[in-house]
Design a protein around this nucleic acid. Structure first.
Lengths: 133, 133
DNA sequence: ATTTAAATTGTTATAATATAACACCATGTA
DNA sequence: TACATGGTGTTATATTATAACAATTTAAAT
């Protein structure tokens, strides 16, 4: 049998936590996740953080660094989370993943003065959303 | 007398903490700053965080969100910290502020699908620096 | 000069975010 | 079988950051 692309089958904890984040209309914080999944037997912060780490690693979720919060990836192209961009409303805190081909192309090809090319980036834009403007 | 551009004169705590960060060859974390300035009479986390907040606000330092660390601004043009880009080596953790006119121009003019324009952004690139490659 | 408003300070306590260390278990595979 | 890898559950602890409040300093506006 040929080597197949290994789909990441989520483990129980990973699935529970992914489902929760995926259904959430807004990014979720680790301890709010912990609170929500305690009824399902996940009792300790580490159980949450381990699942989050793995989910981030395989690109199912992203971390919004400026908010310490996690959001499901809705950008079908990012199997691995290495090129992320978000828009953040500074009033209502609405956060959206940006998928712009031109933006990602520009950043993927960006080289600094030393000719350094990057394997990964995270971009967070801040402003006011339509509603809040 | 004409209205002058208000220079932000740093207060004592702000100056102590800015000097420390400015001299540091690498980004500093809040509690490491706290430890370093205790001999100068700054004893509590809040004193450090308050100075950091102000220094970030006026653009004298930047926060590296993915590292929870602070670096002095070496980009003379950013009086106010609203457009930041960094390169981060994932091995040695060397962090450099990127100043690329074309990058900042591109990002400053970026509009998303809804035509939303942003007042601020933070971009962090990850990769391997020359040494570590 | 005196008053006022705004910003900064010092302080104690506590909240929020994240990891260390260790024993055990499940699964795949040599 | 045995071995490697990754996941789990658990307790404890480390790290990062803010709340609340009273006092003081500063800037500017009378």
């Amino acid at each position: 049998m040929k080597t197949m692309h290994k789909e990441h089958t989520l483990t129980k904890n990973q699935q529970i936590i992914f489902d929760l984040i995926d259904k959430s209309p807004e990014p979720m914080k680790a301890y709010s996740i912990l609170f929500s999944v305690q009824k399902k037997g996940i009792k300790a912060p580490l159980q949450v953080y381990r699942a989050l780490d793995k989910l981030v690693e395989i690109g199912k979720i992203h971390k919004i660094e400026s908010r310490n919060a996690f959001i499901a990836c809705h950008n079908s192209s990012c199997q691995v989370s290495k090129a992320t961009a978000f828009s953040i409303c500074e009033i209502c805190e609405k956060i959206t993943e940006i998928s712009s081909a031109s933006l990602s192309k520009y950043l993927a090809n960006f080289k600094d003065k030393d000719g350094m090319k990057y394997s990964k980036y995270n971009l967070e834009f801040f402003g006011l959303c339509k509603k809040c403007r």
